[in-house]
Structure formats: C-alpha cells, structure tokens
Amino acid sequence: MKLRPLIALVALAGLCLSVPAFAQFDADAAENVFKENDCHKCHHATKAKKGPSLKKIAAKYKEKKLDEKEAIKHMTAGQKVKLDDGKEEDHKIIDTKDVKVQTNVAKWMLSH
C-alpha cells in the first residue's frame, strides 16, 4: 500500500523526462499567431492545401532531425517554395520579429 505514492512519483518523473523539448509551448497563442498571419490558408493541420500539412511538415523535420530553428528560418526568410504545379513562390514572412513568439509557433507546428 505504501509503495503506491512512490510508484506514482516515479511514473510522473518518467513522463516528464519523456516529454520532448519541442512540446513546451503555448498551443493557443501559437495557433492564434499562425491564423492571424493567414498561415492556415495554405497549411492545414492534417490535409494538404497549397502547402503541405503541419503533420507532414512535422514528420519531415523529425526524419531529417531538424528543429524549430529551421522552421523559424523558413517562416522569416521569405525563401522560394516549390508548389505542386511546379511553380515557385515567395513564402510569406510571419508578421513578428519576436523570437519567443516565432519559437512558440515553430514548436507548436512541429508538434503535429
């Protein structure tokens, strides 16, 4: 009986340790910035629109072992992106220079 609290504590500690660094973000704030910047017009959570879904982006970053810094670069540099029809277009630049806000959005995106 006395072991129960200890087991729970160990389990909780294990859970905390298993949470990846990118998961520490404010989802509501990130989603709000994402939508205020109209990112959702091209990037849906799960389905492909003009741009890849957030799920696909997150999987690609995981596979290539990229982190939020790369995502921030993508959303702030205005680099060319290639569309499905072969055309190239300048990627929209997020309307904030606050690195904390950018990082929060990037972490949220990569959590999908």
Partner: peptide, 20 residues
C-alpha cells in the same frame, strides 16, 4: 492577395483557403 491571386483567378473557391 498574397499567395492566393492565381488560385482566385483560376476559379478556386474562397473557402478552399478561408476554411477556419
């Protein structure tokens, strides 16, 4: 209408992007 002008011109629906 950045990022959507050509899509609009070809006849895409407004809600194909504005779907939130």
């Amino acid at each position: 209408h950045k990022g959507a002008a050509s899509e609009t011109a070809r006849g895409d629906s407004c809600v194909s992007c504005h779907d939130d």
